[in-house]
């Protein structure tokens, strides 16, 4: 039984990376968008659209990497559309986000009908467990290159927000739009670009779902990762590097059920599978107190104003 528990731990760690990667991309995208003072709830739709686009392009071109790129571009377009709509007077970003979520998923299902059956080429993985001869460890260390890209993105995004003119402008716009206007910054344009970049990242997250894990295209592919990303970003206190750790935590939580099942513990399987959702709910309840505001929250976010 001793080895079994080790197996569970290793499986959870492996799952954290495998399931956490799409969380990472979506939450980085949401983080950037929120830093500019907008919330994009439409990222759920962006994720599904990215998954479909990535799968379709990979199938037709034979190159999964081209699929990833096109998924990002599709996400970028959805992000740009969202923020363009929000830049009109008296348009609420939450309402537009919900509309964009339905639009994105609907469009993906509509365009994706022909791709449910065929099998597209999969994204390759990097074998980091070659040194070990424990099969579970080997399996857990089968890491997709996109995860490494995601780590690089988290570091780069954190650096960019602090050390580049662009990052500083995004933060000013997110903190105080009036001050930004007084500085002569084009508030709407900066938000459109940030949201589009955020959409690009979310689209990549979607392609990971269809091209690596779980590696198929179906209508039930996403299970709310796009929406949970909003809670993740709050938990990560709007810091990109924290998005990485939080995504791994959520990925690990999601991997708990299957890992326990693999060692024969099947009782409460559905409860274990619900852990990420319970955690999301818990984060929202703990962080949303009527008596205090969050540290680090961009002041322009509509939910906090």
């Amino acid at each position: 039984m001793e080895a079994g528990w080790w197996g569970v731990l290793i499986a959870v760690l492996g799952g954290a990376i495998r399931i956490g990667t799409p969380f990472l991309f979506v939450s980085l995208g949401e983080c950037l968008t929120e830093k500019s003072g907008r919330i994009n709830l439409g990222l759920e739709g962006t994720l599904v659209m990215g998954a479909m686009t990535g799968y379709a392009v990979s199938l037709h071109s034979g190159s999964p990497w081209l699929g990833v790129l096109c998924a990002g571009l599709a996400g970028m377009m959805l992000g740009a559309l969202h923020s363009w709509l929000c830049s009109f007077q008296r348009v609420n970003d939450i309402a537009v986000g919900i509309a964009m979520m339905l639009f994105g998923t609907g469009l993906a299902f509509f365009l994706g009908k022909p791709y449910i059956q065929p099998s597209a080429p999969q994204l390759p993985s990097i074998d980091l467990g070659g040194w070990s001869d424990i099969p579970q460890l080997k399996a857990a260390l089968q890491i997709n290159a996109l995860f490494l890209v995601g780590i690089a993105m988290a570091i780069a995004l954190g650096w960019m927000l602090n050390n580049t003119a662009w990052g500083l402008k995004v933060r000013v716009v997110g903190e105080n739009a009036d001050a930004a206007r007084a500085l002569g910054l084009p508030v709407d344009r900066i938000r459109i670009l940030s949201t589009a970049q955020g959409g690009f990242l979310a689209g990549i997250g979607g392609s990971y779902l269809s091209l690596y894990y779980p590696f198929n295209w179906s209508e039930g592919l996403s299970s709310g990762q796009g929406l949970m990303a909003v809670a993740l970003v709050i938990f990560a206190r709007w810091q990109p590097l924290w998005c990485l750790w939080v995504s791994l935590l959520w990925g690990g939580a999601a991997a708990l059920g299957p890992s326990l099942q693999s060692v024969g513990i099947t009782g409460g399987y559905y409860i274990f599978n619900a852990i990420p959702y319970i955690m999301t709910l818990a984060v929202m309840i703990i962080t949303c107190s009527p008596r205090r505001t969050l540290v680090g929250v961009p002041h322009e976010l509509t939910v906090t104003r």
Partner: peptide
Amino acid sequence: FTLIPNMTILE
């Protein structure tokens, strides 16, 4: 004030 409270004076 038109300063941004969440940023440092330098920023």
